[in-house]
Design a protein around this nucleic acid. Sequence first.
DNA 1: TTGAAAGCGCTAACAC
DNA 2: GTGTTAGCGCTTTCAA
Lengths: 334, 334
Amino acid sequence: MKVTIKDIAREADVSITTVSLIINQKGQRFSTDTHAKVNEAIVKLNYQPHYFAKNLNKTKSKTIGFIVSEITNPFFAELAKVIEDILVEQGYLVLLCNSSSDLAREERYVDEMLYRFVDGVFLAGTVSDNKHLLSKLASRRVPYLLLDRPSDYSDTNGVFIDDFAGGMTATEHLLQKGHTAIGCITTKPQFSNIYQRSQGYLAAMKAIKQAPLLEEAGFVNEQSGYLAAQALINKGVSAIFACNDLMAFGVYKAAEEAGLSVPADLSVIGFDDINLAHFMSPPLTTITQPTQRIGAIAARHMLALIETETVEIATTILPISLKERESVKTKEKR
Amino acid sequence: MKVTIKDIAREADVSITTVSLIINQKGQRFSTDTHAKVNEAIVKLNYQPHYFAKNLNKTKSKTIGFIVSEITNPFFAELAKVIEDILVEQGYLVLLCNSSSDLAREERYVDEMLYRFVDGVFLAGTVSDNKHLLSKLASRRVPYLLLDRPSDYSDTNGVFIDDFAGGMTATEHLLQKGHTAIGCITTKPQFSNIYQRSQGYLAAMKAIKQAPLLEEAGFVNEQSGYLAAQALINKGVSAIFACNDLMAFGVYKAAEEAGLSVPADLSVIGFDDINLAHFMSPPLTTITQPTQRIGAIAARHMLALIETETVEIATTILPISLKERESVKTKEKR
DNA sequence: TTGAAAGCGCTAACAC
DNA sequence: GTGTTAGCGCTTTCAA
């Protein structure tokens, strides 16, 4: 059967307390000899601690939950990967769950995670109307960190970017290049951060008194972007700001089908700067999210929250930047 | 503090045995009245079972491990999503871990998963030289299922596709379209399934006595595909078979930089049929993996393995199909 | 129909 | 320096 601490104690001819303390690095007080005997027995019998027994009267598990709205969106996959790398390095295992932006499912995940005594949970791009869910976490005193999309309830720990500024930057870039008939593909206000990007667009358009051409996509994926782009193209835009890179893929497709060449006939700008943006034809000009930094800061912050046991509120907003590639061209005057 | 079974027993004025049995649907023998009392108490006190205590003398955890070689490859993200959807539906939680094709890391994950008493583990696209890892799983009698890439040790449960046939199909399609100078971007033999695709290519080329032009990419991503494509283009190919869709992105880029238009000057065919393939410019002709089916079969198989407690070996090989889009064009005779 | 009590493997307060 | 022992919350055997 399974080797237990008892077997080690018998083998090393000491008490189980001794073994337990030595295993948990709390055995300074024991003689070198005792240490040696115990360690030998552990190796000899190939002892492995028992997860459930070890944690029975603890509330931690060296496991961290990560709920993501859409794992097939490379932006989230890249972010999850960065964070997991750091956390694994620190001895944690990550329970990565895909919610498909379904609030009920997110709550279900939180329940399951709480049941399993996760040490903390990340919520990346999840539904923002999540008061109930967050209060569950809070009442169990489990630290959580929101990523990408803030909650509708302001006082939450999280790492975000300045979406509004990103939207403005993207739009201003297009404006600078001489475009005026600029369309923007946004989404429902519920996807608050993405919606903010289009608010930035609106602000930039308003600043120079240009009429905005906003199109609301159903989801924030390629297909939605494609459909919305068709509508915008019909309205005669010369440039489109897609509120994420995935939707920009859809814009490229709609342009091609309409016989429009990017960027000669239609300029396109995205948002996120996923790895693939560089490999699109033409390479996509986009707003870069500092994914590595977001991940690094988030992981460190989580570790701090877990280890210090303080559930302090701290929000980090990281700056974005414009990444110019080849999908935007100066609009020629006629 | 936490509400325990003891509190319920006191509240309902029965013994803890009674409560335990009723909670675990083993209380047929109790009176309706007793059932009612217990259930009321559970609701009233908002009782939640204690994960660690409940599992203390069990070897299951309603958690399933999923090790994936590269979560940022949409193919794996899509596959993981399909499987997770089914498993969650069945009451399991998935421990999704990204290994970046690092064997040591995969072993580490297996250890951690075993430590946490996962009910089973999926290995998707992981390193095939994994005898040691698999034997750990086997000796603990934890069912596992390989996906995408078989192990170098034949007798493993798994769901795969016919990679060799896929490679042949892709190549034959190019041949049929009149191409003869066909390059193929493969990878190291260690990535056995992807390598098999290029073996299919080689077989198809050999069958009509055409000299193959194989280029080995370092990794199986966009950048590697890009570099390999440059080399192939320099050799004057008129068509390229990229052994996965991600590499095809790199081919598109290399073509563009070389001033070649796809498919007019260069035909390209991929492998996997990720969602994005449809949105590339031009839409990528590729070999379709039946991701939904793979996932469904794998999930069902895993559930069966877990529930029947039999660790039977069964390998499923699913057929692939050619998905014609617009990246392949008939080669004109000069 | 119901309950008492042993025990799962480990931790930690306390005693020596 | 080291060991005894009482739990942690739950399941399960056995007795009533």
